[in-house]
């Protein structure tokens, strides 16, 4: 969650830059299976969402990244997470990875009134992982509701996140996310 916040600024800047250089920054999506070669997964993309074409991360949104988005990111082991001394270690269990993710969010000054609604194990494309559901307020007072899945695959921690504004946008797009997760397959 925390990492996404910082990426948003970068995302906005990249969009601006790309628009001046003539690149297509966003791709309008049809409901079809998409394969991400960089991160090694495939999933059925929700109809009428937009995919961001820049950077390493997979990011899609329907109404704008602040209002709703799905992202897939991966993290190396033994690399400090943000400005803390914390890192993911290969031997960690899904519960330990979930704990670190929650601790980082608790320590994040951009995330206020964080509330963990549930924190349970999950299986993602056959890999044991975790699923956390949560709410928080952004520093600009927007109430956000989100779901995060995480698991270890091929020497990396993969994190799939869905966040949406709690009013209206969460309920109207959480179904799309559940479909995305259901169809998510590792390559």
């Amino acid at each position: 969650m925390k990492i996404i916040k910082n990426k948003l600024i970068l995302l906005a800047l990249t969009t601006m830059m790309a628009s001046t250089t003539g690149c297509a920054t966003w791709t309008h999506l049809e409901s079809k299976v998409y394969t991400d070669k960089k991160q090694g997964f495939s999933a059925r993309l929700p109809k009428d969402w937009m995919r961001f074409n820049q950077g390493k991360e997979f990011i899609i949104t329907r109404d704008g990244v602040v209002l709703n988005r799905i992202s897939v990111r991966e993290f190396d082991f033994n690399v400090r997470l943000l400005d803390t001394s914390k890192m993911f270690i290969e031997s960690m269990t899904p519960q330990e990875i979930a704990d670190i993710s929650i601790e980082l969010d608790r320590a994040n000054k951009n995330i206020r009134h964080l509330s963990i609604l549930s924190n349970q194990p999950a299986t993602i494309s056959g890999e044991p992982g975790y699923r956390i559901a949560y709410t928080y307020k952004t520093s600009s007072e927007l109430s956000i509701k989100g779901i995060e899945y995480g698991f270890i695959h091929k020497d990396k921690v993969k994190v799939i996140t869905f966040t949406a504004a709690q009013i209206h946008y969460y309920d109207s797009t959480v179904g799309d996310f559940e479909q995305f997760i259901k169809s998510f397959r590792l390559q």
Partner: peptide, 13 residues
């Protein structure tokens, strides 16, 4: 305990 399911997952692993 809230994390019973996690512990079962770990045992399984």
């Amino acid at each position: 305990a809230d994390d019973q399911a996690y512990i079962r997952q770990t045992i399984e692993m």
